[in-house]
């Protein structure tokens, strides 16, 4: 059982590295989808089947499709001049160096942590639902308000003013 976790974790980390380092946005997004799918395998192995399904449906299914749609609408190629200048090993080295320091810090913190072993029991989604709609009822309502605000905000931001001129005649 553990071998599946290690395989999925390796795939997730590899595809995430590929996702943040590709120049082409579509390639990066496809790698990120693969990463999300392997994280969903990890979640499934952690006895969170419902969450694993949500990860596939919402993250890999909805959010990433939104990303891909926007990338295709904007037809983003490799035209980012500033990034071409910035995207060299020196820039990577600085960011990777500081991220590596944080990572070492994390390894030390986790290594020295005193985690008492607790008998892991399977949490069924029924328990999750009961907890969500009793203990966290207020948070669910706030999340609903947030989603509503998101809809209104996206609608407002997404609407463009009407143009009188023909779109081929306007100057770029």
């Amino acid at each position: 059982m553990n071998i599946f976790f290690y395989i999925a974790a390796t795939v997730a980390i590899t595809t995430t590295i590929l996702a943040i380092s590709r120049r082409n946005a579509i390639h990066a997004l496809l790698n990120l989808i693969l990463s999300l799918l392997s994280i969903s395998v990890v979640l499934y192995l952690l006895d969170a089947q419902f969450i694993a399904a949500l990860e596939v449906i919402i993250y890999a299914g909805a959010i990433m499709v939104l990303f891909i749609f926007v990338t295709m609408i904007l037809n983003i190629g490799l035209e980012n001049k500033q990034e071409k200048k910035w995207y060299n090993p020196r820039m990577w080295f600085v960011a990777a160096f500081f991220a590596g320091i944080l990572f070492l810090d994390l390894i030390l913190a986790v290594k020295n942590a005193q985690i008492q072993p607790v008998a892991a029991q399977v949490i069924h989604s029924k328990q999750v639902g009961i907890s969500m709609f009793t203990t966290y009822l207020l948070a669910v309502e706030i999340a609903a308000v947030l989603l509503m605000a998101g809809i209104i905000g996206a609608f407002h931001l997404g609407s463009q003013e009407k143009k009188v001129m023909h779109r081929f005649l306007e100057k770029k």
Binding site: T16, I20, E83, Y87, F98
Partner: peptide
């Protein structure tokens, strides 16, 4: 940390 490094490096 991979996400953080990506956020720091990428300008897109």
């Amino acid at each position: 940390l991979l996400g953080l490094a990506g956020l720091l490096v990428r300008r897109n």
